[in-house]
Design a protein around this nucleic acid. Structure first.
Length: 424
RNA sequence: GGAGAGAUGGCUGAGUGGUCGAAAGCGAUCGCCUGCUAAGCGAUUGUACGCCCUUCAAAGGUGUACCGCGGGUUCAAAUCCCGCUCUCUCCGCCA
């Protein structure tokens, strides 16, 4: 969430930023609520002050066995007035809170303006489209022909958007996330964490999924638990409501987790194959950074994600999300789009974002400056490193052969017990 | 699932209705002392939200709230009552 004080003092800046993001937000209502809140707060605090000092007098009088009934009676009135004010304050703060919780983050000044994903500029391209002397197939056909992906039985067991992996397919998925975890921990300096796959409401609010995106989440029936849509949620919330020492920063964490998404509103989109599942695996990188370093950290984070694709030899491009395409909590996001020959398209395989202090303020994650002793919000970042299922798709489609077999990329072979090719 | 104990500041831990934002100790920071280190001495040491001051901010001043969370009783709650959450111990069950 945004800083209320900043919002109050720089309302025009925020209006302009939200305008650029295509967000319609009633800031007049905010200003009204905010003014009302401070007004009531002052009244109630004055009364509390009176009550506190008079109550002290009552204590004195009682000690001297003197009569305090007049004061007590008067304070009875004050107390009930305080109760009234408290109630209206509670209502206003609830409204105010509900308001600030649904205002998106402000984009960084370097974020390009645009109307949609077609306006996302390509900032980098790596590799080239592979050339085939046959018509490349899509991954679901390849997978079914090789008997390593079984969509029909996934649907039978659970439903649409669930898949059974079999044999070399299951092994490939496992090989890919182990390869990613090893790469990020051994070569990129991240610390691996393994967190709960269900979280409470506070954690979902901390990273921005709640209250605005409830319909995207799976909730456990009868309990206050939600299935995580990304490891970003539990990992970022590791330090929720904590004040870290400056020397602890930066913190670089990497986590494997399954991710669960309701995919409400994406009916009819990517219905076949592994691209859009209710459950998929992901390796996620999360960073906690000092504010002055967070944009350098974002570049490094993106490079770490890109390194996975480079080592797998998969052609990709990096785009910078424009104002219209930027996620709710993000100040700046790079998407990595892998080339999928079967689809003849680039598809998102990683998303790397700097949230600045947006999540940190929601989740109250702060650090103390060593020099000044001052406490301030840190910056959080995260990026997929990478989406595992989509990486399987990319490997299958890019490494397919004319006979329908799949050559295993060199980097994955140690994780496949030396297997060089998946054959029917 | 059953029985019991507990949750207080960075940490340990005292506090059973008013003088408690909270003793004491540890730690940390600053200063003094000291040939250096240690010891010793002194001071400081939470967070949030308002208001005043200030061009803004910082600093400073001032007020309010916060002793796991939420409610209640009372002129007054860390302290009494109710509900919840979490932690620990024992029993049962269990991968």
């Amino acid at each position: 969430m945004l800083d209320i004080k900043y919002l109050r003092q720089n309302i025009d800046v925020v209006r302009k930023k939200m305008d650029e993001r295509g967000q319609k937000i009633d800031f007049d209502r905010f200003l009204e609520l905010d003014a009302k809140r401070r007004d009531i707060l002052q009244s109630v605090e004055t009364l509390r002050n009176e009550r506190n000092s008079v109550s002290k007098q009552v204590g004195e009088l009682k000690k001297q066995k003197a009569d305090a009934s007049a004061l007590i009676e008067k304070m009875g009135e004050v107390s009930s007035k305080i109760k009234e004010y408290d109630e209206s304050l509670r209502v206003i703060e609830e409204d105010l809170n509900a308001f600030v919780m649904i205002v998106p983050n402000m984009q960084h000044e370097s974020v390009p303006q645009g109307q949609g994903s077609e306006d996302n500029p390509v900032v980098r391209v790596w590799g080239e489209k592979p050339v085939f002397d046959f018509e490349p197939k899509q991954h679901f056909d390849l997978g079914e022909n090789l008997n390593i992906l079984d969509f029909a039985r996934g649907a039978k067991i659970a439903g649409a958007r669930f898949t059974v992996y079999r044999g070399a397919g299951a092994q490939l998925e496992r090989a890919i996330f182990n390869f990613m975890l090893d790469l990020h921990t051994e070569k990129h300096g991240y610390t691996e964490v393994l967190t709960p796959f269900m979280v409470n409401q506070e954690s979902m609010t901390g990273t921005g999924q709640l209250p605005k995106f409830k319909e995207d989440l799976f909730k456990i029936e009868g309990m206050e638990y939600y299935l995580i849509p990304t490891a970003e949620v539990p990992v970022t919330n590791i330090y929720r409501e904590e004040i870290l020492d400056e020397e602890m920063l930066p913190i670089h964490l990497v986590a494997f987790s399954p991710c669960f998404r309701a995919e409400a509103g994406s009916y009819g989109k990517d219905t076949r194959g592994l691209i859009r599942q209710h459950q998929f695996n992901k390796v996620e990188m999360v960073k906690f950074s000092k504010p002055e370093n967070s944009y350098d950290e974002l570049e490094a984070l993106t490079a770490d994600a890109e390194d996975v694709l480079k080592r797998l030899g998969i052609h990709y491009r990096t785009v910078c999300l424009c104002t219209a395409d930027l996620g709710f909590s993000s100040a700046k996001t790079y998407d990595l789009e892998a080339w999928l020959p079967g689809q003849n398209a680039y598809r998102e395989i990683s998303s790397c974002s700097n949230f600045e202090d947006f999540q940190a303020r929601r989740a109250s994650i702060r650090f103390r400056r060593k020099e000044s002793g001052k406490v301030e919000f840190l910056h959080t970042l995260n990026g997929s490193g990478l989406a595992v299922g989509r990486t399987v798709v990319a490997v299958l489609e890019n490494y397919q052969q004319a006979d329908g077999s799949i050559v295993i990329p060199e980097a994955l072979r140690p994780y496949m017990r030396g297997l060089e090719r998946i054959v029917p």
